[in-house]
């Protein structure tokens, strides 16, 4: 059942921003098939770690392996399998919701884009706003659109950076369901959140960060 390679393997990973270390000498291994809860205060390195795992950036020192593939060397392949829901939405403010999604579908080389985009918009409840530019959206609507962008990819590893922020209670419930659905479909989840209880209900492992280092929660 379990593949021999850990889903995520951090090997003495450090990342510097300017003159401070966002992540410092971090080693960790997430077994395949398990999902991870990432906790820590603001500025503890959660976001940086997720960005490194998603190949948006790379460690200053040390190595990260995703399903056994080193991120720096195998970035092209990994990017098809890993998706990141980050603070930054990656959306183009001047394009409409539908245009943003269609663009991603085209870059991914997907077929039947119209239907796909329509069904995703339906799923996140934004069908009526499909042709409004993102600039007019509220924070919660952007978040939903960002989720649709992530789902488009059908990733093997999905990284969620504060997914519950900016969502209303109904949205939080939907998000929890979504995370369960993804896991049921075999996607490995990494969840960074301050809502520890909700997070623990959804995941099996926990990694607590303090100033870029691994600590007891």
């Amino acid at each position: 059942m379990l593949s021999p390679q850990p889903a995520i393997q951090l090997d003495d990973v450090s990342k510097r921003f300017g003159s401070r270390w966002a992540v410092a000498r971090l080693s960790y291994s997430l077994p395949a098939g398990r999902s991870l809860l990432l906790t820590g205060h603001n500025g503890s390195g959660k976001t940086t770690l997720l960005r490194m795992i998603s190949t948006a950036t790379f460690p200053t020192a040390g190595h990260i392996k995703i399903f056994g593939a080193e991120t720096r060397e195998k970035r092209e392949e990994l990017r098809h399998d890993v998706a990141l829901l980050s603070h930054a939405s990656f959306l183009y403010e001047d394009l409409t919701a539908a245009q943003n999604l269609t663009l991603v579908a085209e870059f991914l080389g997907l077929d039947q884009r119209k239907e796909l985009v329509a069904s995703l918009l339906e799923r996140i409840g934004l069908t009526s706003r499909a042709d409004s530019p993102v600039r007019q959206f509220s924070a919660g609507m952007r978040k939903r659109l960002t989720i649709a962008r992530l789902l488009m990819k059908a990733p093997k590893l999905a990284l969620f950076d504060e997914p519950f922020g900016e969502l209303d209670p109904a949205g939080i419930l939907q998000m929890e369901n979504l995370l369960r659905e993804l896991q049921a479909a075999g996607t490995t989840i990494v969840l960074a959140t301050h809502l520890v209880e909700q997070g623990q209900a959804l995941t099996q492992e926990r990694l607590h960060l303090d100033q870029g280092r691994r600590e007891n929660p």
Partner: peptide, 9 residues
């Protein structure tokens, strides 16, 4: 958005 494009990929 540029980072978004790069990791899309």
């Amino acid at each position: 958005a540029l980072t978004g494009l790069v990791v899309t990929p």
